[in-house]
Design a protein around this nucleic acid. Structure first.
Lengths: 218, 218, 218, 218
DNA sequence: GATGAATGAGAATTCATTCAT
DNA sequence: TATGAATGAATTCTCATTCAT
């Protein structure tokens, strides 16, 4: 009836956004194509005009997250003349993207149903984060501020550690725990990288205002 | 047609085993009750004679894993007069259980589908592992061999770290990487717990024979 | 295979009609959604495109009957300046609707299975018929042509009486019994309402042509 | 395990009683053979040793009710020298049996699910009650205390009337309504049978103590 | 008489996908 | 671009019934 004939790019984005909302609300496996088109307010057939399958939509959504991380990585790595420490600080917000984009989102992510999507995200994120981290760690070793023979494994460990800590902190909405999380993160980093005490005093600093949990990122 | 009338306990185990195999092959969400009964070679109704629902079977399978971990925890904690280090060594095989029970399993776990089940396992395992680890770490601090102000967070980080490392190592079948994994594990532990070099020279020792990847556990 | 893409309203009606036929043939509980779609000649999914559940279809069918009765009630009650007797005459065809819509239907209703549906219909019909009848009876008392202290109970009794009589008459296809039914009905009404002999000489008159059983109503 | 090897007749009765209870609790269609054997506390196979099918059990239960009514009928009809009025009084408790055996039972019968069973009972009861009533009515006409040209139809109407009235009264537990029911019943009887006022002053008298709803019958 | 494991035909419902318009 | 009716295979679960022991 109402034929808007929207811009294809916008329409596609509309689908992705609707899907994202629904995944968070109802869980990934519980969101049907019917739900998605209902939210967008269009007919079912249109979905298949834009996406070859439900999986394709899923991939597009994942890419949206990964693009954010990619941007952070390039921001951290591409600028000339940065030290390893400066790179690391620039990369640190990626943790928020990985774990979920806000407290609200996180709570929902924790809901059993979203795990499949969440894990997919984590794995894909790690695949691009770990190599970047590895290069930073290696660089830091050359600079003499980090010391390790295993930059790869240490990077893997770092990402996993932070993801787990973030997860355990964010389920509850306690600013105390968040402060503690910052302190713990810095200390564990120092230890893993065998860095001088105080090296990471600014790590995760640029994240949320002190004493508060992170809100939206964008 | 053919009526075997097996021992109920065995039958139940047969279902669980068939389900485990299928979950690994096809993924959890993609394994139907039909698949399971087909593999066991019985009629569909029998499944619901033994399990009230598909979820109940899943829970039974999860319990099978968790029971192993529980046993390890009790073995580590219940014996009188153990030092924190001895406890830790006894607890270390739990990592294998958490990450999956063998290389074969691991490869399959990687199949995108099993993530929901895998994540469920990891979460449940962490819920019982982390507190145990926390007690060991605290005890080690009292003994003066570990040093940290954050035993809880450090425990969370340790479990996550090992799980991730194990995962990244096991996907490929390289004995080299396995040795490297052992070395890395020990070093990271030393650093995280601020322990004397060499403290963990026997950590994960009792696991698989040197230079080999772990096979089945039992 | 063949895609007809019918008008939704027609399709919905097709389902309801098919269901009605099948309920009468096989009984309500014994009619499966499979049966219904087979009769309509469409795929199973289409059923759930139009009805949220089997119960919803049932409700839609019941409404079809109740709408007829509702129409009769309004026809009887809404017109200005009618006497109680005139109202009663206008309401009388409702009996046919309640007991089933034709001899054919009635025979089938007798098939043990349809009882659940039939009873549901009777109950719902009584819920709307009895109050209407009660008002008419009360009005007749005021007019001085009926006499009773119990308009409610008398109404209940009347509906039940007619339903039972209709049922016992209709199972067999005997015009004699039908004439007799008319005579009995009028006499019983006179007695129950303590009305003058001959008061109901036109009651049920407008129904089927004398000496014949009622066919379809519409 | 526990082999009681009960008396077959008792066992059969046990099944019927269990089924009756379950029908009232869960509804007829919702009671499975599994439920029944669980309540009796025996294995499933035993059910089929005593009853050839679920329907057979159902029939046996119905017979139990009908036997009660049969007994009442014979009590009313077989004694020598009774007047029609006396017979009618003796038959009156059958209403209670038809409508259900007690208030509790009645409430449950009203539950939507039991309708199939209830209606089956009503139909079967009417099949034996109506002829008995008809003979009484005819006899009363001969005696000159009743007057009607339609003893059969009047009997049908009477049974239906009472069943409906009873139903509408019993759902609520109001002694007022019960007294009213008695008064209404007597008046309607007088009118239907064109009997002298006061003829039925003792009708339904022998039922429950005045001013109370009926409890169990036996 | 009694057990309970095993059967298997169906039941209702869901949903990704297709396609005529 | 857009619609929405139509598809149909798959899924979970139920339950009366059978039969070896």
């Amino acid at each position: 009836m109402t034929r808007a004939n929207k811009n294809p790019t916008e329409r596609k984005a509309e689908f992705i956004t609707a899907a994202e909302e629904l995944f968070l609300e109802k869980g990934f496996e519980n969101t049907s194509v019917d739900d998605i088109v209902a939210r967008v307010g269009v007919a079912k057939g249109l979905f298949y005009y834009y996406f070859s399958s439900k999986e394709a939509l899923m991939a597009a959504l994942a890419d949206r997250y990964l693009d954010e991380i990619d941007a952070l990585i390039h921001k951290a790595m591409d600028e000339e003349g940065l030290t390893a420490l400066q790179m690391l600080n620039k990369l640190s917000p990626s943790q928020v993207v990985i774990s979920g984009r806000s407290r609200e989102v996180m709570k929902l992510f924790h809901h059993e149903r979203n795990q499949a999507f969440h894990l997919m995200m984590e794995e894909r994120a790690q695949k691009i984060l770990v190599p970047a981290l590895e290069r930073i760690v290696s660089k830091g070793c050359e600079e003499g501020i980090f010391h390790t023979e295993y930059p790869h494994e240490t990077s893997v460990a770092m990402v996993a550690m932070f993801t787990a800590l973030k997860r355990s902190v964010m389920v509850e909405d306690d600013p105390q725990r968040w402060n503690r999380f910052l302190a713990v993160s810095r200390e564990l980093l120092e230890r893993l990288l065998d860095a001088r005490p105080g090296t990471f005093s600014e790590f995760l600093m640029n994240l949320p205002p002190k004493g508060e949990c992170p809100k939206k990122l964008n």
